[in-house]
């Protein structure tokens, strides 16, 4: 499951990236809605957001791009979007506009479960997945509570920290995910730090989906300086490498295809 920033450097390119990743067989795509103050994001995604906003990217334009592109895709699209953006648009308005555009759900990184009640109720009414996050600092009892609130899938944050490529992932990650697996029926997708086929091979047996962000966004950033066709082909090849690692290490990954 790739994460790509919307509008970096422009939405036309984002749409091409979505089509390429879909053609290569990605199961779901997380679309990052650029935000001015993304405190959970590392330098690569931050910089992509800054570039996108500098080119006057607007939220309705992103949703319009999804509306035009989603019907051509087999993979569902969920947005990673700050609560600041959703609140400003109006909770109900944002959810109905996103859904009408063909978005399947939202990951709202700055909305912990105790603040999520109102949005959660609206999303349920619209059959729009509000995907909740569990992190290594989440105590077990709270993790169960979060899992009970989540819809579509449960996002397990692999590291205590911000997004960005890591060479090594925490040694207890597999055990933690295994524990959570016993506590929920939802598909569990792991994200943050995952950037290499080795990570995929390690985590695939315990996860229903793996989210790779900065490693895609870093490659996409080259579109500003080199040929777009070249970047698209590199992105596709990278996705294929990850998918190959996935296929070789797990046969139980159908779940993320049904996610949101």
């Amino acid at each position: 499951m790739p994460f790509v920033t919307a509008g970096d450097p422009d939405l036309e390119f984002t749409a091409e990236v979505l089509r390429t990743l879909d053609a290569r067989g990605c199961h779901l795509c997380e679309l990052g809605m650029p935000y001015s103050d993304p405190i959970a994001d590392g330098p690569v995604i931050q910089a992509s957001y800054t570039r996108a906003l500098a080119s006057k990217l607007r939220v309705p334009d992103v949703l319009e791009m999804v509306r035009q592109t989603a019907p051509q895709l087999a993979m569902p699209i969920v947005t990673m979007v700050s609560y600041a953006i959703i609140y400003r648009r109006g909770l109900a308005a944002y959810v109905s506009e996103a859904k009408a555009a063909g978005v399947s759900g939202a990951i709202v990184p700055d909305l912990p479960v105790e603040e999520a009640g109102e949005l959660s109720a609206i999303c349920r009414g619209e059959d729009f997945s509000l995907i909740q996050l569990v992190t290594p600092t989440t105590p077990p009892a709270r993790a169960k509570q979060i899992a009970a609130q989540s819809r579509g899938f449960l996002y397990f944050v692999s590291v205590t920290g911000i997004t960005g490529e890591r060479t090594e992932l925490p040694p207890d990650l597999v055990d933690k995910v295994r524990w959570l697996r016993g506590e929920t029926d939802l598909p569990i997708c792991i994200g943050f730090g995952i950037s290499q086929p080795e990570h995929v091979r390690t985590l695939a047996p315990v996860a229903d989906g793996l989210i790779v962000g900065s490693a895609f966004v870093r490659r996409m950033a080259r579109a500003a300086e080199t040929s777009r066709a070249q970047v698209l082909s590199e992105l596709g090849d990278f996705a294929a490498q990850l998918l190959e690692a996935l296929d070789s290490s797990s046969s139980s990954l159908s779940a993320d295809a049904q996610a949101p």
Binding site: A84, D110, P112, T138
Partner: peptide, 12 residues
């Protein structure tokens, strides 16, 4: 007011 932060920070 409230607490609109990533889950990672809520325990702290």
């Amino acid at each position: 007011g409230g607490r609109f932060v990533p889950e990672t920070l809520t325990r702290a």
